[in-house]
Amino acid sequence: MADHPETTSSTATRVLGIASLASIVVLVIYAFAVTGPDVRLGETVRIMYVHVPTVSIAYLFMLANAVCSVMFLVKRSSFFDVAAGASGEIGVVLLGLTLVTGMLWGRPTWGAYWVWDARLTTTALLFLMYVGYLTMRTLPGNPNVRAVRAAVVGIVSAALIYPVHMSVEWWSSLHQGRTVFGRATKAAIAGDQETALYIGFLAFLLVASWLAVHRFRVGWLADRAAGVEIDAAVAARRAEHEPAVSSLGQVKP
């Protein structure tokens, strides 16, 4: 990367971007043209092709956030801090999308946008927890201390991911059971619907990765820019004394 880059893109991200766009187009075709309505869920099954992949990829990015947080505490490299921030942000966006699509699905299926179901409630709490994590990252103060605090919050927050994922089984939830990684995978979804779901996974993984790489680079550049500002301030302070040194030939106290 150049000293003063004007873009966060590279050949790799352009390829990733094009692949993301192509996979979204394939997903739209599969979701609306290839697959038909479900026997039980009707047309609303098409929401599943977005809802299930977004929540799975959100979990993945939140786990990545926890791993990067641990790595930051171990290695103390700002690389892991910035990576944790980027993965946390993408995780929150995807989880927000999951909640919105879930509510859109709930209205025709359950007759309400929101029901006080264990899976919905714990997912909303997980979302709020990561909003808290992002809030922690934006608080003013020493960047190193802030990074340590955020890393600890990231690790604690990850402890809720598994209970949220298992909540449909633990609390006999209204929400349907696990669609893909459950024990009754084949009974839950099959054929073109299953293919559409897997295309959804791929599409959202590519889009999320593309966004995460760009967000990481923005964060990295912001870090460097903050360093440059400090260096410039130090250089300016030194420069205030330099004319006096050269004209008098001695260092002023």
Partner: peptide, 21 residues
């Protein structure tokens, strides 16, 4: 942290959801 009175509940209460349930 400046404003810890508002930050703490935001961090503390959601993480207690599994304990509460």
């Amino acid at each position: 942290i400046e404003g810890r009175e508002t930050v703490l509940p935001l961090l503390f209460l959601p993480v207690q959801a599994p304990v509460l349930l």
